[in-house]
């Protein structure tokens, strides 16, 4: 027995909804499968979207849902930038490290073979920029090979604390392609106190020295500061200091401290609140580099083929945004 009122109810309820708004319509009595099929057929015919059928209620969106990917700025489209955790060990043990890196952390190196394959597949997958991070990448004896594999494929950024530019590591730096590589060096303050408080005594001075070396060697240097959220707006002296080091304004990046990894506090970052940036570690593909040590944001253990990993991240993002939009529209206040 078909509930003949169902389609009349659909027309009336959806007709009163705003574009992209959702309404819930009771299926009424009858075979649930047949009723669901009727709703689906009506939606197809009228250009509306059946969001879900739960129990005896169908949720229908007026019109077609917006494509969350199309709403993003092109440079935010997941897969435009590809992050690679080259390793997790570090010469520092910053107390807010999102990756829980330290001298005691296991290396968990990605390795030259995987980095090379990723760089090659990244080109075909439409990636525009590669970003290498850690841990401290300059602890790796083959860091110059890793970087060369990346810069041969795409413009690349290498994140470092800038403290190890001497001896064979300085030689490795000098072998890198200045025309295709930017260095992103961590520095939290214009004076040692704040930086050293979290990263260790003497680290500020060595980082600043590293910035000067990198600049003298002809590299583009970007500075990234990690600050508690409440301090991210008092930065005049810090920017003045970076200006004095010759860092371009657009290369002065301020990030709020995230409550991830070793950090005891900071802003909460979840799958729902983060626009994904595809991140590869030795363990798999993660939603975002800030959560590469957290299984809640593990997307898949399968790194290859890279295109499939990127597609899966985009699919999950689209699905999650659709659910969030629907939930936001019917969440009751009372």
């Amino acid at each position: 027995m078909v509930n003949h009122r169902l389609v009349l109810d659909l027309v009336e309820r959806v007709g009163t909804a705003a574009r992209h708004g959702t309404v819930s319509v009771s299926l009424g009595d009858g075979d649930p499968e047949q009723l669901s099929a009727t709703v689906a057929a009506w939606c197809t015919r009228t250009g509306n979207e059946l969001v879900a059928v739960q129990g005896n209620v169908a949720t229908v969106r007026r019109g077609r849902s917006l494509d969350p990917l199309a709403e993003l700025a092109p440079d935010l489209l997941p897969g435009t930038r590809l992050w690679m955790y080259t390793n997790f060990d570090c010469n520092l043990a910053c107390d807010y490290c999102c990756a829980r890196s330290s001298p005691q952390a296991a290396r968990r190196a990605l390795g030259i073979d995987r980095v090379r394959q990723l760089a090659t597949e990244a080109v075909d997958a439409g990636v525009a920029e590669l970003i290498l991070t850690g841990g401290e990448p300059f602890l790796l004896p083959d860091i110059d090979e890793l970087v060369a594999a990346c810069t041969a494929a795409l413009p690349t950024t290498l994140l470092t604390n800038g403290m190890l530019f001497r001896g064979r590591r300085l030689d490795a730096l000098r072998r890198m392609d200045r025309s295709r590589l930017a260095l992103q060096i961590s520095l939290d303050s214009a004076t040692p106190d704040q930086h050293d408080q979290h990263r260790g005594r003497g680290s500020w001075e060595r980082a600043v020295a590293g910035i000067r070396i990198a600049r003298d060697e002809g590299f583009r240097v970007r500075i990234a500061a990690t600050l508690p959220y409440e301090k991210t707006h008092e930065l005049g002296p810090f920017h003045d200091f970076l200006d004095s080091l010759g860092i371009a304004t657009e290369d002065q990046v301020i990030r709020a401290l995230a409550h991830r990894g070793a950090a005891e506090d900071g802003i909460e970052l979840t799958l729902e609140s983060l626009i994904p940036e595809v991140t590869i570690t030795a363990e798999g593909v993660y939603w975002h580099p800030v959560s590469a040590d957290h299984d809640d944001q593990l997307v898949t253990r399968d790194i290859f083929p890279l295109q499939e990993a990127i597609t899966e991240v985009r699919r999950r993002f689209t699905e999650q945004r659709a659910h969030a939009t629907a939930a936001a529209q019917w969440f009751p206040c009372a």
Partner: peptide, 15 residues
């Protein structure tokens, strides 16, 4: 327009 909106006689056979 209403006849079209309810799918004419195609979506609710017997209605």
């Amino acid at each position: 327009n209403t006849w079209e909106a309810i799918g004419r006689d195609e979506l609710m056979p017997g209605a």
